[in-house]
Simulated scan of single mutants.
Amino acid sequence: MRWKNAAMVTAGITTLLGGAALFKGLAPNRYGLPEIEVLAPGATGKRVAQGELFGNYFPAQGPDAGPGPHPAVLLLGGSEGGLGSGARQMALALQQEGFAVFQIAYFGAPGQTDALEGIRLELFDKGLDWLKTQPGVDATRIAVMGASKGAEAALLVAARRSDVAAVVAGMPTSVAWNGINWASGGQSDRSSWTAGGKEVPTMPFGDWDQADGIISVYRTIEDPARQTEADRAAIPIERGRAEVLLVCGEAETMWPACPMSRQVAARSKARSGPPVTVLSYKDAGHFVFGPPIARDHRFYPRLGEYGGSVEGNAAARANSWPQVIAFLRRAMVDT
């Protein structure tokens, strides 16, 4: 990653936090680094700490759960790392809809690197394999869900696993990007991900534009002259079998999630891949994805901070979340 102004890089990366960071204070600690939450699962879940695997598991509950076996979701947070409260909120909402959920940590948790770089995709494979063996889980009905950088990982995982039935990605990308390392001000020269011991190819960043903000460095993905580089770094969604649902805001100011969502859909269609549905919202941004938020919640006034209005993001979440649940039920429960 070579952005022209290191201070701008740090400020920009600080805000590139997935939906799972929604309820964090985002205040840096005494070392100037962002705090990483590693939250306990609460009364309806349990902590998982088995070898490389670290996370919170939430067995299926809810009035419609029934005796099982139940469909299950591997849930990936974003660049906030650890086990964040926003992702836990998603996990609890899914749990009450009758899904078993494994909220897996992939950096920033005990025994893990503090940097989002060189994360082994095989870790998510192990998470899926563990999830499929849990009592009451139907191993034939598995989905992956993620937001922002977690969406990037979710799509990569779905592309390499033929046993994943569905993938839901909020504020997604169509390509892999470089990682995030707070020890170097947020910058990293490494890919976010590795597979088979090799770094996943990444899309080069563009130059910082002060007027456009952080999204400016991601505009390379919209440049026809960079198509060869985009193809090299593209997530090969056509290799998987999972039905795909993407949720994005057209007013996004973090990265161009809606244009990249349409690129994912176009690539899959052109290469005879799985069906891809895009839910886009005109007046929403980087907080477009997740369960609805009540007006009296302390975070509600901040929903429009990274694109769109407060009301637009709130309406998008209220509209899209029931469609997420319906999509998962159709793709997994009703098969």
Rank of each mutant, 00 (worst) to 15 (best):
Leu83Gly: 01
Arg262Pro: 01
Trp255Asn: 06
Ala40Asp: 06
Gln112Tyr: 09
Ala314Trp: 04
Pro322Asp: 10
Pro67Gly: 02
Lys198Phe: 15
Tyr300Arg: 03
Ser79Ala: 15
Gly111Gln: 13
Leu33Thr: 05
Ala151Asp: 09
Met203Glu: 12
Ala20Val: 00
Ser216Gln: 13
Lys132Asp: 00
Gly197Ile: 14
Gly108Ile: 12
Ala315Cys: 04
Leu121Tyr: 11
Ala315Gly: 06
Ile142Gln: 06
Arg88His: 08
Val73Asn: 00
Gly249Thr: 11
Ser192Asn: 08
Pro63Phe: 01
Arg2Gly: 13
Pro292Gly: 01
Leu16His: 13
Arg30Leu: 07
Thr335Arg: 14
Ala316Pro: 08
Arg2Val: 08
Gln61His: 03
Met8Trp: 12
Gly108Ala: 14
Gly150Phe: 03
Thr15Val: 10
Leu94Asn: 02
Ala65Lys: 00
Ala93Gln: 08
Gly45Glu: 01
Gly170Phe: 04
Pro41Ser: 12
Ala251Gln: 14
Ser85Ile: 00
Lys269Ala: 15
Gly77Arg: 02
Trp177Leu: 09
Ala257Gly: 12
His297Arg: 03
Gln263Gly: 01
Glu117Tyr: 14
Met8Val: 06
Gly55Ile: 05
Ala43Glu: 11
Ser79Thr: 11
Lys126Thr: 09
Val144Asp: 06
Ser320Cys: 06
Val278Tyr: 13
Asn313Leu: 10
Pro291Phe: 01
Arg219Lys: 15
Ala230Trp: 05
Arg30Tyr: 04
Glu238Met: 13
Ala93Arg: 09
Ala151Glu: 03
Ala176Val: 04
Ala166Asp: 02
Leu74Ser: 00
Gly19Gln: 05
Glu80Val: 03
Met260Ser: 15
Phe287His: 11
Tyr31His: 09
Ile221Pro: 00
Leu83Met: 04
Thr277Asn: 07
Gly197Ala: 13
Val333Pro: 05
Ala195Gln: 14
Leu245Tyr: 03
Trp321Ile: 03
Glu37Cys: 02
Met332Lys: 02
Leu76Ile: 07
Val73Leu: 02
Ala105Gly: 12
Arg160Pro: 02
Pro201Leu: 05
Gly111Asn: 07
Thr335Val: 09
Pro236Thr: 14
Ile142Phe: 05
Val144Thr: 13
Arg302Thr: 10
His286Tyr: 10
Ala21Cys: 11
Ile237Tyr: 10
Met254Cys: 11
Phe99Arg: 02
Thr133Leu: 14
Leu16Glu: 09
Arg271His: 14
Leu75Gln: 07
Phe287Thr: 13
Val200Trp: 00
Ala27Asn: 10
Lys149Gln: 10
Ala105Trp: 08
Arg30Ile: 05
Val9Lys: 04
Val144Tyr: 08
Ala318Pro: 01
Pro236Cys: 13
Lys132Leu: 01
Val200Lys: 03
Arg232Leu: 14
Gly98Thr: 02
Gly77Lys: 00
Val217Glu: 09
Asp163Asn: 05
Gln187Ile: 05
Glu222Asn: 12
Thr194Arg: 03
Gly66Trp: 00
Arg190Pro: 01
Phe99Val: 03
Asp189Gly: 15
Arg271Tyr: 06
Gln263Lys: 15
Phe54Thr: 07
Pro224Gln: 14
Asn313His: 07
Met171Ile: 09
Leu53Ile: 04
Phe23Tyr: 13
